[in-house]
Write a protein that binds this DNA or RNA. Structure first.
Length: 363
DNA sequence: CGCTGCGGGTTTT
DNA sequence: AAAACCCGCAGCG
Protein backbone atom coordinates (compact mmCIF):
# COMPACT_ATOMS: atom_id res chain seq x y z
CA UNK A 1 0.00 0.00 0.00
CA UNK A 2 2.68 2.38 0.97
CA UNK A 3 5.19 0.88 -1.29
CA UNK A 4 4.98 3.72 -3.69
CA UNK A 5 5.64 6.08 -0.90
CA UNK A 6 8.50 3.99 0.24
CA UNK A 7 10.09 4.25 -3.10
CA UNK A 8 9.69 7.90 -2.92
CA UNK A 9 11.19 8.21 0.45
CA UNK A 10 14.09 6.11 -0.55
CA UNK A 11 14.76 8.46 -3.34
CA UNK A 12 14.62 11.25 -0.91
CA UNK A 13 17.08 9.54 1.21
CA UNK A 14 19.34 9.32 -1.75
CA UNK A 15 18.82 12.95 -2.21
CA UNK A 16 19.91 13.49 1.32
CA UNK A 17 22.98 11.47 0.70
CA UNK A 18 23.86 13.72 -2.10
CA UNK A 19 24.03 16.48 0.37
CA UNK A 20 26.71 14.59 2.12
CA UNK A 21 24.63 13.40 4.97
CA UNK A 22 25.34 10.21 6.69
CA UNK A 23 22.67 7.78 5.73
CA UNK A 24 24.42 4.57 6.40
CA UNK A 25 22.76 4.26 9.73
CA UNK A 26 19.28 3.44 10.71
CA UNK A 27 17.48 4.61 13.73
CA UNK A 28 16.95 1.03 14.76
CA UNK A 29 20.60 0.24 14.70
CA UNK A 30 21.90 -0.82 18.02
CA UNK A 31 25.11 0.96 17.35
CA UNK A 32 24.82 4.28 15.71
CA UNK A 33 27.75 6.08 14.15
CA UNK A 34 30.14 7.45 16.67
CA UNK A 35 32.28 9.56 14.45
CA UNK A 36 29.66 11.93 13.29
CA UNK A 37 31.19 14.55 11.12
CA UNK A 38 28.12 16.05 9.65
CA UNK A 39 25.80 17.60 12.10
CA UNK A 40 22.50 18.88 10.93
CA UNK A 41 20.58 21.96 11.78
CA UNK A 42 17.59 21.23 13.83
CA UNK A 43 14.61 20.46 11.73
CA UNK A 44 11.67 22.25 13.16
CA UNK A 45 9.26 20.87 10.61
CA UNK A 46 10.50 17.42 9.79
CA UNK A 47 8.70 15.93 6.90
CA UNK A 48 8.97 13.07 4.48
CA UNK A 49 11.77 10.61 4.92
CA UNK A 50 14.66 12.28 6.59
CA UNK A 51 17.50 11.14 8.70
CA UNK A 52 19.43 13.67 10.64
CA UNK A 53 22.05 13.82 13.27
CA UNK A 54 22.05 16.68 15.65
CA UNK A 55 24.63 18.27 17.77
CA UNK A 56 24.75 17.39 21.39
CA UNK A 57 24.63 21.12 21.93
CA UNK A 58 21.32 21.37 20.23
CA UNK A 59 18.78 21.73 22.93
CA UNK A 60 15.85 21.32 20.63
CA UNK A 61 17.20 18.04 19.52
CA UNK A 62 17.90 17.06 23.07
CA UNK A 63 14.35 17.79 23.98
CA UNK A 64 13.09 16.22 20.81
CA UNK A 65 11.15 19.29 19.98
CA UNK A 66 9.12 19.66 16.87
CA UNK A 67 6.85 22.35 15.66
CA UNK A 68 4.40 19.76 14.57
CA UNK A 69 2.13 18.63 17.29
CA UNK A 70 3.56 15.26 18.01
CA UNK A 71 2.44 12.70 20.48
CA UNK A 72 4.27 9.79 21.78
CA UNK A 73 3.62 6.45 20.32
CA UNK A 74 4.89 3.55 22.25
CA UNK A 75 7.07 1.27 20.26
CA UNK A 76 8.10 -0.78 23.25
CA UNK A 77 11.66 0.11 22.70
CA UNK A 78 13.03 2.22 25.47
CA UNK A 79 16.01 3.17 23.39
CA UNK A 80 13.90 4.74 20.74
CA UNK A 81 11.40 7.49 21.15
CA UNK A 82 8.75 7.41 18.54
CA UNK A 83 6.20 10.09 17.88
CA UNK A 84 3.39 10.59 15.49
CA UNK A 85 1.94 13.79 14.21
CA UNK A 86 -1.43 14.88 15.49
CA UNK A 87 -2.24 16.85 12.42
CA UNK A 88 -3.89 20.18 12.65
CA UNK A 89 -7.09 21.60 14.05
CA UNK A 90 -9.34 23.32 11.61
CA UNK A 91 -12.70 25.00 12.02
CA UNK A 92 -15.63 22.66 11.90
CA UNK A 93 -17.49 25.22 9.92
CA UNK A 94 -14.79 25.35 7.36
CA UNK A 95 -14.77 29.04 7.95
CA UNK A 96 -12.31 31.43 6.51
CA UNK A 97 -11.19 34.84 7.38
CA UNK A 98 -12.37 37.66 5.26
CA UNK A 99 -9.54 37.23 2.89
CA UNK A 100 -10.25 33.59 2.51
CA UNK A 101 -7.49 32.28 4.63
CA UNK A 102 -7.85 29.31 6.85
CA UNK A 103 -6.76 28.93 10.36
CA UNK A 104 -4.71 26.01 11.42
CA UNK A 105 -4.49 25.51 15.10
CA UNK A 106 -2.12 23.33 16.92
CA UNK A 107 -3.74 20.27 18.39
CA UNK A 108 -3.21 19.85 22.05
CA UNK A 109 -0.95 16.95 22.75
CA UNK A 110 -2.78 15.70 25.77
CA UNK A 111 -5.88 13.76 24.82
CA UNK A 112 -8.03 15.49 27.37
CA UNK A 113 -6.81 18.88 26.37
CA UNK A 114 -7.44 18.04 22.77
CA UNK A 115 -11.00 17.01 23.44
CA UNK A 116 -11.50 20.18 25.33
CA UNK A 117 -9.94 22.09 22.51
CA UNK A 118 -12.44 20.70 20.11
CA UNK A 119 -15.26 21.98 22.20
CA UNK A 120 -13.98 25.47 22.08
CA UNK A 121 -15.33 27.93 19.59
CA UNK A 122 -13.58 28.81 16.44
CA UNK A 123 -11.16 31.61 16.89
CA UNK A 124 -12.26 33.30 13.75
CA UNK A 125 -14.38 36.32 14.23
CA UNK A 126 -18.04 35.82 13.60
CA UNK A 127 -17.68 32.13 13.24
CA UNK A 128 -20.21 30.75 15.60
CA UNK A 129 -19.04 27.27 15.20
CA UNK A 130 -18.44 25.43 18.33
CA UNK A 131 -16.69 22.59 16.77
CA UNK A 132 -13.22 22.55 15.49
CA UNK A 133 -12.81 19.01 14.35
CA UNK A 134 -9.37 17.74 14.58
CA UNK A 135 -7.85 16.28 11.55
CA UNK A 136 -5.89 13.45 12.89
CA UNK A 137 -3.22 12.54 10.50
CA UNK A 138 -0.50 10.30 11.63
CA UNK A 139 1.34 9.43 8.57
CA UNK A 140 4.50 10.99 9.75
CA UNK A 141 6.52 9.49 12.47
CA UNK A 142 9.48 10.87 14.17
CA UNK A 143 11.92 8.55 15.68
CA UNK A 144 14.65 9.59 18.01
CA UNK A 145 17.58 7.66 19.21
CA UNK A 146 19.38 10.17 21.31
CA UNK A 147 20.36 12.80 18.81
CA UNK A 148 19.68 10.70 15.79
CA UNK A 149 16.42 11.54 14.20
CA UNK A 150 14.50 9.82 11.51
CA UNK A 151 11.22 10.90 10.08
CA UNK A 152 9.04 8.71 8.01
CA UNK A 153 5.94 9.45 6.07
CA UNK A 154 4.68 12.80 4.99
CA UNK A 155 2.42 15.41 6.45
CA UNK A 156 -0.60 15.78 4.25
CA UNK A 157 -1.96 18.73 6.09
CA UNK A 158 -0.90 22.28 6.66
CA UNK A 159 1.34 23.29 9.42
CA UNK A 160 -0.34 24.18 12.67
CA UNK A 161 0.79 26.87 14.98
CA UNK A 162 4.03 26.27 16.68
CA UNK A 163 3.99 25.26 20.25
CA UNK A 164 4.91 28.70 21.38
CA UNK A 165 2.25 30.28 19.31
CA UNK A 166 -0.35 27.94 20.66
CA UNK A 167 0.78 28.63 24.17
CA UNK A 168 0.62 32.30 23.53
CA UNK A 169 -2.86 32.06 22.20
CA UNK A 170 -3.97 30.06 25.17
CA UNK A 171 -2.47 32.47 27.60
CA UNK A 172 -4.08 35.37 25.86
CA UNK A 173 -7.41 33.63 25.94
CA UNK A 174 -6.99 32.85 29.56
CA UNK A 175 -5.98 36.35 30.39
CA UNK A 176 -8.94 37.80 28.66
CA UNK A 177 -11.29 35.47 30.38
CA UNK A 178 -9.78 36.31 33.68
CA UNK A 179 -9.84 39.99 33.13
CA UNK A 180 -13.44 40.16 32.10
CA UNK A 181 -15.42 37.16 33.16
CA UNK A 182 -18.57 38.93 32.17
CA UNK A 183 -17.23 39.97 28.87
CA UNK A 184 -19.47 38.75 26.11
CA UNK A 185 -18.07 35.56 24.83
CA UNK A 186 -18.12 36.58 21.24
CA UNK A 187 -16.30 39.72 22.04
CA UNK A 188 -13.64 37.77 23.81
CA UNK A 189 -13.34 35.49 20.92
CA UNK A 190 -12.92 38.37 18.61
CA UNK A 191 -10.17 39.81 20.63
CA UNK A 192 -8.53 36.53 21.08
CA UNK A 193 -8.57 36.09 17.42
CA UNK A 194 -7.01 39.41 16.89
CA UNK A 195 -4.33 38.69 19.34
CA UNK A 196 -3.53 35.26 18.21
CA UNK A 197 -3.66 36.08 14.60
CA UNK A 198 -1.29 38.88 15.11
CA UNK A 199 1.04 36.49 16.71
CA UNK A 200 1.35 38.28 19.98
CA UNK A 201 3.56 36.41 22.31
CA UNK A 202 3.56 36.53 26.03
CA UNK A 203 6.79 38.38 25.90
CA UNK A 204 5.42 40.72 23.36
CA UNK A 205 2.28 41.66 25.08
CA UNK A 206 3.49 45.13 25.58
CA UNK A 207 3.97 45.53 21.92
CA UNK A 208 1.27 46.90 19.77
CA UNK A 209 -0.89 44.33 18.15
CA UNK A 210 0.80 44.38 14.88
CA UNK A 211 -0.12 41.90 12.30
CA UNK A 212 2.38 39.17 12.22
CA UNK A 213 3.02 36.03 10.36
CA UNK A 214 0.07 33.80 10.81
CA UNK A 215 1.16 31.90 7.80
CA UNK A 216 1.66 28.74 9.67
CA UNK A 217 -1.93 28.33 10.43
CA UNK A 218 -3.43 30.57 7.89
CA UNK A 219 -3.08 29.66 4.33
CA UNK A 220 -4.48 31.19 1.24
CA UNK A 221 -7.90 30.39 0.03
CA UNK A 222 -6.36 28.17 -2.54
CA UNK A 223 -6.06 25.54 0.09
CA UNK A 224 -9.68 25.65 0.93
CA UNK A 225 -10.68 22.93 -1.37
CA UNK A 226 -8.10 20.78 0.12
CA UNK A 227 -9.62 20.97 3.48
CA UNK A 228 -13.22 21.32 2.70
CA UNK A 229 -13.50 18.80 -0.01
CA UNK A 230 -11.12 16.25 1.20
CA UNK A 231 -10.97 16.79 4.86
CA UNK A 232 -11.26 13.12 5.37
CA UNK A 233 -9.17 11.81 2.57
CA UNK A 234 -6.61 14.32 1.51
CA UNK A 235 -5.76 13.82 -2.10
CA UNK A 236 -2.10 13.44 -1.89
CA UNK A 237 -1.72 12.27 -5.37
CA UNK A 238 -3.62 14.98 -7.03
CA UNK A 239 -2.80 17.80 -4.80
CA UNK A 240 0.10 17.76 -2.51
CA UNK A 241 2.20 15.34 -4.33
CA UNK A 242 2.45 17.48 -7.37
CA UNK A 243 3.93 20.80 -7.88
CA UNK A 244 1.21 23.25 -8.51
CA UNK A 245 2.90 24.65 -11.52
CA UNK A 246 4.98 23.39 -14.35
CA UNK A 247 8.14 25.10 -13.38
CA UNK A 248 8.54 23.01 -10.31
CA UNK A 249 7.68 19.78 -11.92
CA UNK A 250 11.20 19.11 -12.95
CA UNK A 251 12.57 19.04 -9.51
CA UNK A 252 9.76 16.97 -8.27
CA UNK A 253 11.27 13.62 -8.86
CA UNK A 254 11.12 11.44 -5.88
CA UNK A 255 10.13 14.12 -3.52
CA UNK A 256 6.69 14.34 -4.93
CA UNK A 257 5.13 12.51 -2.09
CA UNK A 258 6.54 14.86 0.38
CA UNK A 259 4.01 17.32 1.50
CA UNK A 260 4.15 20.73 0.12
CA UNK A 261 2.68 22.06 3.28
CA UNK A 262 5.83 21.73 5.13
CA UNK A 263 7.97 22.80 2.33
CA UNK A 264 7.02 26.32 2.71
CA UNK A 265 9.60 28.52 4.25
CA UNK A 266 7.23 31.39 4.27
CA UNK A 267 4.38 29.41 5.57
CA UNK A 268 6.39 29.34 8.64
CA UNK A 269 5.27 31.17 11.64
CA UNK A 270 6.94 34.15 13.01
CA UNK A 271 7.47 33.09 16.50
CA UNK A 272 9.63 33.69 19.38
CA UNK A 273 10.87 30.22 18.97
CA UNK A 274 11.77 30.98 15.49
CA UNK A 275 14.31 33.37 16.68
CA UNK A 276 16.43 31.07 18.64
CA UNK A 277 15.10 27.86 20.02
CA UNK A 278 15.17 26.16 16.73
CA UNK A 279 18.36 27.67 15.77
CA UNK A 280 21.46 25.88 16.75
CA UNK A 281 23.62 28.05 18.83
CA UNK A 282 26.54 27.19 16.72
CA UNK A 283 26.21 25.37 13.51
CA UNK A 284 28.91 23.62 11.67
CA UNK A 285 27.87 25.30 8.54
CA UNK A 286 27.35 28.75 9.79
CA UNK A 287 24.89 30.87 7.97
CA UNK A 288 25.85 29.71 4.60
CA UNK A 289 23.71 27.69 2.33
CA UNK A 290 20.74 29.87 2.81
CA UNK A 291 20.64 30.06 -0.88
CA UNK A 292 18.72 26.90 -0.64
CA UNK A 293 15.76 29.03 0.11
CA UNK A 294 13.81 28.63 -3.03
CA UNK A 295 13.31 31.48 -5.37
CA UNK A 296 9.71 31.71 -4.51
CA UNK A 297 7.91 32.27 -7.70
CA UNK A 298 4.60 31.55 -6.22
CA UNK A 299 2.84 34.83 -6.37
CA UNK A 300 0.97 34.04 -9.47
CA UNK A 301 -0.05 30.63 -8.43
CA UNK A 302 -1.36 31.91 -5.18
CA UNK A 303 0.05 28.92 -3.51
CA UNK A 304 2.24 29.81 -0.69
CA UNK A 305 5.20 28.03 -1.99
CA UNK A 306 6.69 25.96 -4.59
CA UNK A 307 7.93 22.60 -3.65
CA UNK A 308 11.62 22.59 -3.45
CA UNK A 309 14.27 20.12 -2.59
CA UNK A 310 13.48 18.69 0.74
CA UNK A 311 14.92 20.46 3.71
CA UNK A 312 17.26 17.68 4.40
CA UNK A 313 20.71 18.83 3.74
CA UNK A 314 19.59 22.32 4.11
CA UNK A 315 21.08 23.73 7.18
CA UNK A 316 19.50 27.02 6.46
CA UNK A 317 17.78 28.00 9.63
CA UNK A 318 15.21 29.90 7.72
CA UNK A 319 14.22 26.84 5.89
CA UNK A 320 13.25 25.25 9.08
CA UNK A 321 11.83 27.96 11.13
CA UNK A 322 11.93 31.31 9.47
CA UNK A 323 14.10 32.43 12.27
CA UNK A 324 15.16 35.99 12.02
CA UNK A 325 12.39 36.55 9.66
CA UNK A 326 10.95 39.63 11.10
CA UNK A 327 8.22 41.34 9.18
CA UNK A 328 9.63 44.27 7.40
CA UNK A 329 7.34 46.62 9.22
CA UNK A 330 7.93 45.26 12.62
CA UNK A 331 10.04 47.22 14.98
CA UNK A 332 13.23 45.55 15.97
CA UNK A 333 12.81 43.82 19.23
CA UNK A 334 15.15 45.30 21.65
CA UNK A 335 18.16 47.01 20.31
CA UNK A 336 20.36 44.15 19.45
CA UNK A 337 19.46 40.54 19.42
CA UNK A 338 18.94 39.14 16.03
CA UNK A 339 18.46 42.52 14.59
CA UNK A 340 21.54 42.30 12.55
CA UNK A 341 20.39 39.20 10.83
CA UNK A 342 16.98 40.38 9.98
CA UNK A 343 18.12 41.86 6.79
CA UNK A 344 19.22 38.65 5.29
CA UNK A 345 15.70 37.51 4.94
CA UNK A 346 14.48 40.51 3.18
CA UNK A 347 14.44 38.71 -0.05
CA UNK A 348 11.91 40.17 -2.35
CA UNK A 349 9.94 37.06 -2.69
CA UNK A 350 9.64 36.70 1.01
CA UNK A 351 8.77 40.25 1.53
CA UNK A 352 6.19 40.27 -1.12
CA UNK A 353 4.58 37.28 0.27
CA UNK A 354 4.75 38.40 3.79
CA UNK A 355 3.39 41.70 2.83
CA UNK A 356 0.48 40.10 1.19
CA UNK A 357 -0.18 37.87 4.13
CA UNK A 358 0.47 40.24 6.90
CA UNK A 359 -1.53 43.08 5.57
CA UNK A 360 -4.60 41.08 4.99
CA UNK A 361 -7.21 42.03 7.49
CA UNK A 362 -8.64 39.06 9.24
CA UNK A 363 -11.69 40.47 10.72
C1' DC B 1 -2.88 22.95 33.06
C1' DG B 2 -0.53 21.03 29.43
C1' DC B 3 3.80 18.97 27.49
C1' DT B 4 6.77 15.16 27.60
C1' DG B 5 8.52 10.55 28.26
C1' DC B 6 7.50 5.98 29.84
C1' DG B 7 5.38 1.67 29.62
C1' DG B 8 1.50 -1.86 29.90
C1' DG B 9 -2.05 -3.44 27.20
C1' DT B 10 -4.66 -3.82 22.87
C1' DT B 11 -5.55 -3.68 17.99
C1' DT B 12 -4.08 -3.76 13.31
C1' DT B 13 -1.18 -5.15 9.57
C1' DA C 1 5.58 -10.81 15.01
C1' DA C 2 5.94 -6.17 14.28
C1' DA C 3 3.87 -1.92 14.02
C1' DA C 4 0.69 1.20 15.51
C1' DC C 5 -2.62 2.75 18.77
C1' DC C 6 -4.78 3.71 23.40
C1' DC C 7 -4.44 4.90 27.94
C1' DG C 8 -2.74 6.22 32.38
C1' DC C 9 1.07 7.69 35.15
C1' DA C 10 4.80 10.76 36.71
C1' DG C 11 7.97 14.63 36.23
C1' DC C 12 8.28 19.10 34.95
C1' DG C 13 7.55 24.03 33.85
Amino acid sequence: MLKGADDVVMEQEDSASQHGEITSWDINDIKLPQDVRQIDWFQEWPDSYIKRIYSSEDKNAQKHHSSWAMRNTNNHNSRILKKSCLGVVVCGNDCSTLDGRKIYLRPAICDKARQKQQREPCVVLACATNSAPLRLITRLFLTYHNLFQKSKGAHDHPRPETKIEAEARRSVQKAQTAFSPSYPRLKRIQETEVTFITGAMPTQKALPLLPSKPDAYMLPANFRGYLSKSSREPMLDSCCGRPPYPGAAGEDGGSGEASTWSRSPHVLPMTKSSHHPFRPSAGPLGDESCEETPPLAHSSSGLPLPPYPAPQGSPCPRASGAPHHRPFWAPARGSGGEGGEGGCCMGLSHCNDDTAFNLYPLW
